[in-house]
């Protein structure tokens, strides 16, 4: 049986099913990261002492990563536009760029982890580092999941390009939506863990 509104918009709600689904998913993600940030606040407010965050962590590396992710948000937005306009070559290039930037992000993050661990700064060192590893780790998992989706959308998923173009473009849009969200979360992490 065919399910309506997978690709076209339902007139009275103005939404397609996947789009609504994605917004709902992101709402729950907001609650998830919201819970983590609240935990951070509670633990920090109640702490007897708190390390000088920017002395422990590397602000320049994180700033670099912020720039990388922001750039990838731009490329994925352009990739969506290219997909909508049917420009397959541009879409491929931009999506590949997005993926490359995501990989750079994870690489930088990984080297940061390795550096910290080699200095003996582990999750168990103190609550601040515990939060740092847990929250950035969860965020990195989100990036990795996004990378998998993006890779699928230039790889096997792109077979839909011809047959169901509108549906495919919608998928790219959702991937972009998710990617922007993960980007926003990173900016919050950057602000809270490196700057505050």
């Amino acid at each position: 049986m065919d399910i309506p509104y997978t690709t076209d918009v339902r007139p009275d709600t103005g939404l397609t099913n996947p789009k609504l689904g994605m917004w709902l998913f992101l709402a729950s993600e907001v609650m998830l990261f919201g819970s983590f940030f609240s935990s951070y606040a509670l633990l920090r407010v109640g702490a007897a002492s708190w390390p000088d965050q920017s002395a422990v962590l590397s602000v320049p590396l994180a700033a670099l990563n912020t720039a990388v992710l922001l750039a990838s948000s731009v490329t994925i937005a352009l990739a969506w536009r290219a997909a909508r306009q049917g420009d397959r070559a541009a879409y491929r290039g931009l999506m590949a760029a997005t993926i490359a930037l995501g990989i750079v992000f994870l690489g930088v993050k990984g080297s940061e982890y390795a550096d910290k661990l080699s200095q003996g700064l582990a999750p168990s060192t103190d609550v601040f580092l515990g939060l740092y590893y847990t929250m950035t780790g969860l965020h990195a998992l989100h990036i990795a999941a996004g990378l998998a989706v993006n890779a699928y959308l230039i790889g096997p998923g792109a077979r839909m390009w011809q047959a169901q173009h509108a549906r495919f473009a919608n998928r790219v849009e959702l991937a972009a939506l998710y990617w922007h969200f993960v980007d926003v979360i990173w900016i919050c992490i950057f602000a809270v863990f490196y700057l505050l």
């Binding site: 819970s35 935990s39 582990a122 999750p123 168990s124 609550v127 515990g130 590893y133 847990t134």
Partner: peptide, 16 residues
């Protein structure tokens, strides 16, 4: 979130 934090406490030695 709570389960992840408790998991970290139990497995990674954090003390949230």
């Amino acid at each position: 979130a709570a389960a992840i934090l408790q998991g970290m406490d139990r497995v990674a030695g954090t003390s949230f």
